[in-house]
């Protein structure tokens, strides 16, 4: 009897607000959400059926869904050109470098800025670090060419004037990973450090003050208070970044390397630049979409996998 009563108690359904009431109660919040939701519906979900183009022999009179279905034929050229491995490797290598080095420097920078006591200096240095983010990749390409080129570049002019042997930088594939990573970091670090700086500001000041009272040095404060409290931010940013690990920074790569200098391709060609060249040369949307699909699918699997790993280690840090 007793047992039965308890069982009944357990199966009582909790009161669930009807959807209409949920919406009415949160009108303002919902409204604020709306633009973002619409954005994703229009730009992320509506175009999704369009990936079908990757499986067709596209012609635009018949449209995406009217063009003949060709299965995986559009993916063939990726294998045939023998570039798939190189492209995937380069793309992942660059993105991993960007993510790891970038985050490391961003955190360092945020902590350093946080330690600055002089207020105006703090503001000025933040602004200066922020600036490169607003320079377009086209300009970076032009700047790089004017500094690095052999005949008239600033660097080689300097070397020549001081009696050295000028270097043919645009023929040296090995140097470019450094140049590209340097440019990327120069551009992104100031901007990226803002997020970390914000979460440092969010740390409860009582903890820091208590540590100070207990005689913790500033290094100890960083090591035991600031770094641990940046962990969740770091992991979330990392997971987001991993999702895009197959997506290269096209603007930067294309403007630094260009479409013709194939000497540098072995170390600098990423999926984006390859797809772009293919589309230019063959004006073929279907094969380009095929590559895009490959990228997205890979990125999706990677996010799921890393989220699963994070969940195993500490469920609190997982995205979902």
């Amino acid at each position: 009897m007793n047992v039965k009563g308890r069982k009944q108690e357990l199966t009582i359904k909790p009161y669930k607000k009807p959807l209409g009431k949920v919406i009415r109660d949160n009108k303002v919040l919902m409204l604020m959400c709306l633009p973002a939701v619409l954005f994703f519906i229009i730009f992320a979900y509506c175009p999704m059926p369009g990936v079908y183009i990757a499986f067709t022999n596209y012609n635009f009179r018949d449209g995406i869904f009217g063009s003949p279905f060709v299965g995986f034929k559009n993916f063939e050229f990726l294998l045939k050109s023998g570039q798939l491995w190189l492209l995937t490797r380069n793309t992942i290598f660059y993105n991993l470098s960007f993510i790891l080095l970038g985050n490391f420097l961003q955190i360092t920078l945020a902590i350093m800025v946080n330690e600055i006591r002089c207020n105006w200096f703090k503001k000025v240095s933040q602004t200066i670090m922020f600036l490169p983010y607003f320079i377009s990749a086209v300009l970076i390409g032009v700047l790089a060419f004017n500094i690095l080129n052999y005949d008239t570049g600033a660097l080689n002019t300097l070397i020549r004037e001081t009696g050295g042997n000028p270097v043919k930088i645009y023929s040296m594939a090995g140097i470019w990973p450094f140049v590209i990573i340097l440019c990327n970091i120069w551009q992104q670090t100031g901007y990226g450090s803002i997020v970390y700086f914000a979460s440092i500001c969010g740390i409860d000041s009582q903890i820091v003050e208590a540590a100070e009272v207990d005689g913790a040095t500033s290094l100890q404060r960083i090591r035991y208070i600031i770094l641990p409290s940046l962990k969740p931010t770091f992991i979330i940013l990392m997971l987001f970044a991993l999702g895009g690990i197959m997506k290269g920074n096209f603007g930067l790569f294309y403007n630094l390397i260009g479409p013709a200098n194939s000497q540098l391709f072995p170390s600098t060609d990423i999926i984006e630049t390859f797809v772009f060249r293919t589309m230019m040369n063959q004006n073929n949307f279907a094969t380009s979409s095929a590559v895009g699909l490959y990228q997205s699918l890979f990125g999706f699997l990677l996010v799921m996998f890393s989220n699963w790993v994070v969940k195993k280690i500490d469920p609190d840090y997982a995205l979902f």
């Binding site: 080129n149 645009y170 390397i257 200098n261 194939s262």
Partner: peptide, 8 residues
């Protein structure tokens, strides 16, 4: 130019 392939 030595860097002809990057010149435009």
């Amino acid at each position: 130019r030595e860097d002809v392939l990057n010149y435009d």
